[in-house]
């Protein structure tokens, strides 16, 4: 007789990989085939996760249509099932999945639109952290400044895309329509949640490089280099003051 662990392993496999051949012996038919009964659980799992992804990626769903979205999410669920019981955590890898998903290779902007939607989703749900008081920086020795590593608000997200992602997103909101020039240029976009409302805005290249580097836990020195590479006249003091004014910095430490 199978152990409970073996049963659950086989059951999970049947749900994820559309197979039920091994399960027949330990399920009762009762007038409805055991495989059809397994299908009910699989449908529940697939439909609920597809619906959850549809809420996280409404623009992707609209761009590809409900039928293709159901197909793509079914494949995604089978290949990358959730690992967290909190469904809001699910789907972080959906953009990468789309970039490798051959059936949508004719829509090369899709993965970046998904990345953008994911930033919006994460910004809408995370907890705010208390902002760092500017006085916390006052005691830091100037010679240590380059080794500072800042923590930004969890809602802050950064996307650099060769596609006009924000324009695509805008014309695909409910009740809206329109055309986007796909060759119209990319975006350097910041997502954040000032005053509790999720917002996004495009940033000048140097500011984007600076903030995105800090958000990625680069040192202050490395973030400054990244910004100065884009704009030799980058005003780092003003950029730092603006981050503090935005209440965007929540912590600071010295790189070991």
């Amino acid at each position: 007789m199978l152990s409970l662990l073996e049963i659950q392993t086989a059951f999970a496999g049947a749900l994820l990989y559309d197979g039920a051949a091994d399960l027949g012996d330990w399920l009762r038919d009762d007038g409805i085939a055991a495989t059809a009964r397994i299908d009910i659980y699989r449908n529940n799992m697939q439909a609920s996760l597809s619906a959850a992804l549809g809420e996280m990626f409404p623009v992707i769903r609209r761009l590809v249509g409900d039928g293709f979205f159901a197909y793509a999410t079914h494949e995604f669920v089978s290949q990358h099932p959730p690992v967290s019981p909190c469904v809001a955590d699910y789907g972080a890898g959906f953009a990468d999945f789309l970039s490798a998903f051959a059936p949508c290779c004719e829509l090369p902007y899709l993965p970046d639109v998904a990345r953008f939607e994911r930033l919006l989703h994460d910004a809408a749900r995370c907890a705010d952290a208390p902002p760092l008081d500017a006085s916390a920086l006052a005691g830091i020795d100037a010679s240590d400044a380059g080794r500072l590593v800042f923590t930004l608000q969890p809602s802050h997200g950064y996307l650099c895309s060769p596609w006009p992602v924000t324009a695509i997103w805008r014309v695909n909101q409910d009740g809206r329509d329109g055309a986007v020039d796909l060759q119209g240029g990319g975006v350097l976009v910041e997502v954040c949640r000032p005053d509790g409302i999720v917002e996004f805005r495009e940033l000048p290249p140097a500011d984007f490089a600076f903030r995105a580097a800090l958000a990625g836990a680069a040192t202050f020195a490395d973030a400054l280099v990244a910004a100065s590479d884009r704009d030799a006249a980058f005003d780092v003091a003003a950029a730092l003051a603006e981050l503090l004014a935005d209440r965007a910095i929540t912590g600071v430490r010295l790189m070991e």
């Binding site: 659950q8 749900l15 799992m45 609920s48 996760l49 959850a52 099932p81 959730p82 019981p85």
Partner: peptide
């Protein structure tokens, strides 16, 4: 019920023998 096997969360309330 159970909904996790091998670290995978199956998002449904699955039956036990």
């Amino acid at each position: 019920a159970w909904c996790i096997a091998g670290g995978v969360y199956l998002n449904d309330l699955l039956p036990l023998p």
